[in-house]
Amino acid sequence: MISVFVNGEREEVSGNTLFSAFPPKENTVMILNGFQVNEDFPIKENDEIHIIEKGVFPPEKQLEAMMSARHTPKVHKVLKKSKVAVAGLGGLGSNIAVSLARMGVGKLFLVDFDIVEPSNLNRQSYYIKHIGMPKTDALKTQIEEINPFIEVSVKNVKVTEDNVFELFNGFDVICEAFDNPVDKAMLVNSVMLNMPKTKIVSASGMAGYDSANNIKTEKRMRNLYVCGDFETGADFGTGLMPPRVLVCAGHQANMILRLLLGQNEP
């Protein structure tokens, strides 16, 4: 008998290969130690095996075990107890929030004052059915459909110098995802002045369709990280297109992930 973990629960199995212990069935997917397998492999003590029924949403414990297997238990544990605030839920913020939710970041705080309007659909994580809804509520609804087991709180408010501290104090990382450069500078300055120990991941320059390779992440000053090409602002003739906006959102989400996991270099 070998003692292994099956969907997060310890189980004694007979047979020293995956398929001898768990004969493959149609409509299931097998994951051995975080890796999806389609052929038989030897198994040993303490291996983590996930047998996922296709097309069925698993209960919380099983989903947690699967996420843990996917991201490694250490990473999953850290992310689950992390708290990230996202300021601005447009092309950057909505996509970053979805990415953080998919990773299983335990607590998300989403802030925006605006409603979803038709021109947002070119790059932001919203659907026609969300038009007219506050972006905060539209995004919360989506995240509940991706991972209902993370805590999402929202605030439908315009961020100003006067409410930055009250809104964002106590978060591990703050993500600046505004559109307007004056708002970007206001938030970054307020956080650096009033919450000097808090890390802030910001963005500058992701409009148009210049090379995606020009978008990068830089560490600036003490706790500021800026993603973008640093020069291509939205302007007449240079619109915000989904690919570069998503590349930049990916840079920001990855930097947030790295910071949560203790990696401070871009």
């Binding site: 995802a177 559109d179 910001s202 020069e231 602002g233």
Partner: peptide, 10 residues
Amino acid sequence: VEIVCFVGGG
């Protein structure tokens, strides 16, 4: 001196 300048878009 360190200066970070922001451009619009998000």
